[in-house]
Design a binder for these strands. Sequence first.
DNA 1: CTCCTAATATTCAAATTTGAATGGAATGTT
DNA 2: AACATTCCATTCAAATTTGAATATTAGGAG
Lengths: 291, 291
Amino acid sequence: MSSMDWTHLQTFVAVAGAGSLSGAARAMAGSQPTMGRHIASLEAELGVRLFDRTGHGLELTPTGIELLEHARAMAQAADRMALVAQGRAETIAGTIRITASDLVATYILPDILADLHGLEPEIQVEVVASDRTENLLRRDADIAVRMYQPTQADVITRKVAELEIGIYAAHDYLAKAGVPETLRDVLDHDVVGYDRGEQIIQGFRAAGVAVDRDFFSFRSDNQVVAWRMVVAGWGIGFNQLQVGDGEPLVRRLFPDAPLPSLPVWLAAHAELKTSRRVRRVFDFLGERLGA
Amino acid sequence: MSSMDWTHLQTFVAVAGAGSLSGAARAMAGSQPTMGRHIASLEAELGVRLFDRTGHGLELTPTGIELLEHARAMAQAADRMALVAQGRAETIAGTIRITASDLVATYILPDILADLHGLEPEIQVEVVASDRTENLLRRDADIAVRMYQPTQADVITRKVAELEIGIYAAHDYLAKAGVPETLRDVLDHDVVGYDRGEQIIQGFRAAGVAVDRDFFSFRSDNQVVAWRMVVAGWGIGFNQLQVGDGEPLVRRLFPDAPLPSLPVWLAAHAELKTSRRVRRVFDFLGERLGA
DNA sequence: CTCCTAATATTCAAATTTGAATGGAATGTT
DNA sequence: AACATTCCATTCAAATTTGAATATTAGGAG
C-alpha cells in the first residue's frame, strides 16, 4: 500500500523551508536529531535522495525540488483544512455551569473563577451551589466539583487534590466555654456539623473517642451556614484548612488529630473531549484546585 | 500555528474511507485502538467533531465531510509525490506491484516472474490477482496486464501479444457425455464460462451458432475456478492455448473454430517510464509475454 | 594555519506511542 | 429469545520514538 509516513512529509516541508535540520527543529516542535531521522527515513522509503548535505545545512536535490512541489501541495491542503476547521470549531465563548458544594462554591471557587475571568473573559460562568449529585448527562451542569468520586456513565473524572480538615472554634466561644485539653473533652462541648458528618465521626472514632448521633448540637444541610455558626461562637466545628485558617475569628484546635482528608474530584461529561470551552475550564480548575 | 499531526490526517482519510476504525486498521498498518486515538486527537486538535459514533461504525458529521475534502486533496498530493518519487528512484531494488487476471496470475506469470527473480533478485514482486481496473494513478499497482486496452489518462500502454483461445473438455467428461461433432452440438452440452463471457458468445455467433444467456451451465467470476471445473469434468470450457494445451486431463475440441483471440496489453503510469525498476519489469514482461 | 561558528551525526535514557487482550454495546440472525 | 457477529473503549506491557548531551565535520575569518 502507499504507506509513506505523513509525519516525515511534514518534516520534509519544514526542512526544505528552513534550509537546515536545526532551523526546522526550531520552527516546528521538535529537535534536530528527529528532523534528521525523518528525512533519512523518507529518503529510504522513497528510494530517493532529497537533500545534499553541504555541511552548512541541507540543499535540495533536483528530485527533492520536484517532490517538494507535491509536499507543498499537501501542506496547502492541510492549511485550508485547518482554516475550515477553525471556522467550524466551537468558539470558546459561551456559558459554562459549574456545580460544587456550597462551601467550595462560597470560599474556594470565587478566587479561582475571578482569575479565570481575567484570562478568558468570553466565558460566562454559572455556579450551582449544591451537593446533590447533579446530572452531568442531562447538562444540569457542565462540570462538577465533588468530594467523592462521581460514578456516572459517560462521565470523565479526575482527582485533583486531597484537602485536609481541621477542628476550629471561635475565640469568643473558647473564652466562654473553655479550651478542651483532649479530643475526649470535645464531647462536653457544643459541636456544629453538617449532614454528611460521617467522616468526622469516623475520624473521632479512629482517635479512640466514642461519639454517637447526638454528637452535633447544631446541624445544617448547608456547610456554609454551619461554618457561620462556628464563627459566630455556637461551638466547635470543622472545615478545610484552606478556609478555616483564613478566618481570623476562629482558632484551630488539635492540629494533630487524625481527621480524614477529603479528596477533590472534577467531573464532566464525555463531551469534554471535544468542547474547547469545557476543556479549558476543566483544566483550569484542575490546575488551581490542585495547587 | 499549523500544528496538526499529519499522521492523524492520514488516519482520518483511512477511517473515513473504511467507515470504521477496525476497517481502517485493516487497510493500513495499524490497530483499532490506534485509529481511535488518532481520530480523538485530531478532533481535539481541531476542536471539531468529525464522526458520529453510531455503534456499528463511525459516520462523518457534516463538518467531517467538509474537512475530508481537504484531507483527500492531501492524500492525492501524497500519491502524486509517491508516483514521481518512484519514477526518480535510482536503485532498481524495491517492490513492484503487478495486477493481472487471476488466470494469468495463476498460470502464466509464475514462470515468468521466477525467471525475473533469477535475473534481478533485488526486485520484490507483489501480484494482485484481480480483473478489476486497478487505479494505476493511486498505485494500486505499478504495472497491469490486461486483455483489453486500458484507457486511463497518463497511462502508457503496449500491446505485447495476441493469445488464441481454445475449446476444451476433460477426457472423463467426453467419455460420459459424448464428443460433440459440430459446434452446434455444443449447445446440448454443459458449458463452463466466466462472467465476461461476451467474447466467447460472439465467437459462436460468428460461427453461425446462436447462443443466449443460458449458454453457460456454470459460471464463476474467477476464471481459475471455472477452469478447474472444466478439468474436473463439469463440461466444456474455454482457455488460452498456452494453459489448455498444458493440461493433460483435457482435450482440445474444434481447433479450427473461429474464436476471437485475446490481446494482451501492458500498462503503467507515465511517470514510471523513468523508473529503472518499473521499466525493467515492464520490458521483461513484454518480452516474455510476447514469446 | 588555526580558531570560531554553525551545522550534522551518534548515543542512550526517558517519554510517548503502540497493539494484544479484554469488556461491553449494538445489530442482525437463527 | 438466545446466539453470533461486529464494532468501539480501555488497559497495560512492550516497542518505538524522542531529545539532551556529546562527538564530529565543514566552512570562513583573522
